[in-house]
Simulated scan of single mutants.
Amino acid sequence: MQARVVESMEDAKQAVPPEPRRVLPAAGMLKLSLGFLLLGVGVGLPAIGLFLARHSEAVAAAAPALFRPCVGAPEEEEALERWIRPPARARHAMADEELLWLASFAPRARGRSGGYPFRRVPKVAFMFLAHGPLPLAPLWERFFRANEGRYSIYVHTMPLYRANFTSDSVFYRRQIPSKNVEWGQMTMCDAERRLLANALLDISNEWFVLVSESCIPLFDFNTTYQYFQNSSQSFVMSIDDPGRDGRGRYNLNMAPEVELEQWRKGWQWFQVDRELAVAIVGDTVYYPKFKEFCRPGCYADEHYIQTMLTIEATHRLANRTVTWVDWSRGGPNAAHPATFGRGDITEEFLRGIREGGACMYNDRNSTMCFLFARKFAPSALEPLLELAPTVLGFG
């Protein structure tokens, strides 16, 4: 700021004609200006304007040193607070291109301890990809209760839908600017990137969890939070399927960015850390290829993120998701997993999902493999609320 003042003053000196000319001191000119303002009725505004025009350069040069804001300049801590404070509302006026650009920024320098140079409580960002209403919201409300400051919520719906949550709801004003989404189209990945980008604007968000309106939590919030915070890998299912619905969807035009042996498939519902989230929203290499060449029957939401992250960060992936689904009811060629309603919700059913798995967690065998489950119909809400305190551990 000081360099700019000096430069302006040098410019003002060069603009003075070589003939001797009396220039009032800056402070004197400002006092005289105020005098003119007080006598404005008698002297007239045109005279004041003429005076300011003649001496504008000197006034401008002196202004930074003489004028101070009424409230005072912010301290360094306050200035930093402006950068790290999350947006108050999820809605904004940015276009997707602007949003993705802004969200792709990532801090490189860290504090002495290797962390952030300010007190930062890592949060889990829950990103709801929904058509419209959230019929299971009351269950999620209980899940989030008393854990403020450790989570954030973002909801992507069809553009014309407007949620009507009350101000005491965790979902109040958490709807982000959205666009139309078509099943099996690249617009599904656009929505995922849009959710990630909005969540990245909050620098405290460390984990990013994609769920749908038919998902439920299987454990209490603290257990879920610690599972993510203690994990050394992100949870993205990425498999090499040699069949028709795997490599059979590959387009030769994907090369050389994506070769056939790099093509991967997996479930849509991912859970990634901040570094991988930034990589997804900042991708300009693989996204154009998928947008142009992955079209039905290539379903981009099953291949884009899975393939891109396998190529760029395969060692960072646990190669599984923590969202449970049941494909058995529809047979081997089912397009959608089973949906569970009121009659399916029993203590035995829920405990079977929670405890019946076998997986690797931080390179160790574990039976705690799933933190969420889908798809649950609205009719499942009432029995879920009844069983949540005794089976799910919250409510």
Rank of each mutant, 00 (worst) to 15 (best):
Q2P: 13
V6F: 13
E7R: 14
E7I: 13
A12T: 06
A12D: 06
A12W: 05
E19C: 07
P20V: 13
A27E: 13
K31E: 14
G40Y: 00
G40S: 04
V43S: 00
L45G: 11
L45Y: 12
R54F: 10
L66I: 05
L66R: 04
F67D: 08
E75G: 15
R82H: 00
I84P: 02
P86Y: 07
P86M: 02
P86N: 00
A90D: 10
A90K: 05
L102R: 08
L102I: 07
S104K: 05
S104P: 11
A106V: 14
A106C: 14
A109V: 12
R112G: 13
R112Q: 12
G115V: 02
P117R: 05
F118G: 06
H131W: 01
G132I: 03
L134N: 07
R142T: 01
R142Y: 07
R142P: 05
G149F: 00
Y151M: 10
I153E: 01
I153F: 06
H156W: 10
P159V: 01
Y161V: 09
S167T: 11
D168S: 13
D168K: 07
F171I: 08
F171K: 02
I176Q: 07
P177N: 03
P177M: 08
V181C: 05
C189F: 03
A191L: 05
E192D: 05
R194T: 10
L195E: 00
L195S: 05
A197G: 06
L218G: 02
F219C: 01
Y225L: 07
Y227F: 15
Y227T: 08
D241L: 02
G246N: 03
G246H: 07
R249P: 01
R249E: 08
R249A: 02
Q262V: 01
R264L: 04
E275T: 11
L276F: 11
A277F: 05
A279W: 07
T284D: 13
K289P: 08
F290S: 04
C294K: 06
C294S: 10
R295C: 14
P296Q: 09
Y299A: 04
A300V: 08
D301K: 05
E302K: 04
I305F: 10
Q306I: 01
T307R: 03
L309T: 09
T314A: 11
R320V: 00
T321N: 09
T323Y: 03
R329S: 13
G330H: 00
A335F: 12
G341T: 00
G343A: 15
E348P: 00
F349L: 06
G356V: 02
N365L: 10
R374G: 05
R374C: 03
A377D: 15
A377W: 07
A377Q: 12
S379Q: 09
E382Q: 10
P383T: 03
L385T: 02
T390P: 06
G393P: 12
